[in-house]
Design a protein around this nucleic acid. Structure first.
Length: 268
DNA sequence: CAAACTCCCTGTTAGC
DNA sequence: TGCTAACAGGGAGTTT
């Protein structure tokens, strides 16, 4: 499940390979992957554009284009999406949904087994990312911001941290990891978390994301970012010992999401 | 306002 | 062994 660190890895991978290249063709194999535009229009608008830059906003891969009507191509990988740059001579892979051919003989392939991923071609970035909250690694994400956000609402801690309009980029894995580090129960009420734990949470979020980015993300589940070496401490470790106290990690459901925690370290 | 549910999808896995 | 049903999960939309 690509979250902020995995998306960042994808962005870095992509930028290195496509920046400055020109689009020569674009093919849509699964039309529902592109939002609000028909395959023919999608192709027509992309062909001839130059890829100026690739960056990240929340969990979106943002590709800035020049020379066309819509200067932003945004990609959300959702559950199983991945972007690869391969030789245009390569036949499309089984779950390739979109292919964008470049003038240098390479192609960007959007592969997405479960078809939840989406691409958007828009004039303004905000048309897609307008509702996103703060970047957790930015200056704006201060302890004061986190405190105000948590205290200002009465939500389950985990549900609020997953809310992209609050903090952009956190997903199931890194929320479980961060809550474990800060010793906060996922079902704790956001407005009742003591200040000391909010401070711990703030640090935990930044440290976990920073570490995961340096390791190119997590290699877990059905998403495989090449070389992703971050090893979760609680996520996906049901029945394994908590690395802090040895108690068996438990799996519960919070907000319809599988949730991993240490029942001893994280009390409601 | 918060939270549960539904839907979109398919590979994997539990159950028979 | 072989089949089927349940399950997972991000986000948008709907209902409670």
């Amino acid at each position: 499940m690509p979250e902020l660190p995995e998306v960042q890895s994808t962005v870095d991978y992509l930028r290195e390979r496509v920046q400055g290249e020109r689009v020569t063709a674009a093919t849509v194999f699964w039309s529902r992957t592109i939002s609000g535009i028909k395959p023919a229009d999608f192709s027509r608008q992309l062909v001839g554009c130059e890829i100026v830059d690739v960056f990240r906003r929340g969990k979106f891969v943002c590709i800035r284009l020049a020379g066309g009507r819509s200067p932003f191509l945004l990609v959300h990988l959702r559950m199983s999406g991945s972007l690869d740059v391969v030789s245009s001579k390569n036949a499309p892979a089984v779950h390739d949904r979109i292919t964008i051919e470049l003038a240098n003989g390479k192609s960007v392939r959007f592969n997405d087994t479960r078809k939840f991923g989406r691409m958007y071609l828009v004039e303004r970035l905000e048309q897609v990312t307008g509702g996103l909250g703060v970047e957790p690694l930015s200056e704006e994400f201060s302890l004061a911001f986190l405190t105000a956000g948590m205290r200002g609402r009465k939500r389950l801690a985990k549900a609020l941290l997953l809310d992209q309009s609050f903090i952009a980029g956190l997903g199931n894995i890194y929320v479980d990891e961060s809550l474990w580090k800060a010793q906060i129960h996922p079902k704790a009420r956001s407005h009742k978390v003591p200040h000391a734990k909010l401070a711990a949470l703030h640090s935990a979020i930044r440290e976990t994301l920073t570490e995961a980015i340096s390791l190119l993300g997590t290699d877990f589940g059905d998403h495989v970012v090449d070389g992703g070496m971050y090893k979760p401490l609680v996520y996906g470790r049901e029945d394994e010992p908590c690395s802090r106290c040895g108690t068996s990690i438990k799996r519960i459901v919070v907000g319809q999401r599988g949730t991993h925690l240490c029942p001893k370290c994280q009390r409601v």
